[in-house]
Simulated scan of single mutants.
Amino acid sequence: MDMTMAAEDLKAVVNRLRRAQGRIAGVIGMIEEGRDCEGVVTQPAAASRALDRAGFAIIATGLQRCLTDEDMAAPADREQMRARLEKLFLSPA
């Protein structure tokens, strides 16, 4: 399955991943500085949400591409693709 993404979709996904990367770096810094627990605890959840949203954006793009792909005309191809997409969709959960 080719995951070529439109430039605007790719930019949004990369931005979300960078946001998550920044949050994770922030958590590491906070721990290394010995910051209070309450401030540190909220940051991993924010990073996790950013990663989840990026993953779902990638999956949604894949679903859109697969649903519009004219090469998936044969029932066997559709079933195989359905199984692969189901696996992808459930992977971030």
Rank of each mutant, 00 (worst) to 15 (best):
A83E: 15
D69H: 02
A93Y: 12
C66D: 07
A54H: 05
A20I: 07
L85P: 00
T4R: 14
P92G: 02
G34L: 12
M81D: 02
L51T: 03
D77G: 14
M72Q: 06
E33G: 14
G26D: 06
T42N: 07
A46D: 11
A47W: 00
A50T: 01
A57W: 00
M1Y: 03
A74D: 15
I59W: 02
D9Q: 08
R16D: 00
I28F: 09
Q21N: 06
A12V: 02
E86R: 08
A93E: 07
Q80H: 12
T4E: 13
S48M: 03
E70D: 13
A73F: 07
R16K: 08
E33N: 14
R23K: 08
I24A: 15
A54W: 07
M5D: 07
R65L: 08
V13H: 08
T4Q: 14
I24G: 06
A74R: 10
A7H: 14
A83L: 15
E70W: 03
A12K: 04
A73S: 11
R23P: 00
M30G: 04
A46I: 08
I58Q: 01
A93M: 09
R19W: 01
R16P: 00
Q43W: 03
D9L: 09
M72G: 01
E70R: 14
P44K: 03
E32C: 11
Q64Y: 11
G62P: 05
A12E: 08
D2E: 14
F56I: 02
L88C: 07
V40G: 05
A47T: 00
V13K: 07
V27H: 01
V40W: 08
V27C: 13
T68I: 04
M3E: 13
R16N: 01
L85C: 02
R82C: 12
P75Y: 15
A83C: 12
G34I: 13
Q43Y: 03
A20G: 15
R49A: 00
A20S: 15
D36E: 08
Q64V: 07
K87R: 09
M5H: 10
L17F: 02
I31V: 10
V27A: 13
Q80L: 11
E86T: 11
L85E: 07
L85Q: 03
I28K: 14
A45W: 05
M3H: 13
E38I: 11
R18F: 09
E33K: 14
R16C: 02
Q21S: 03
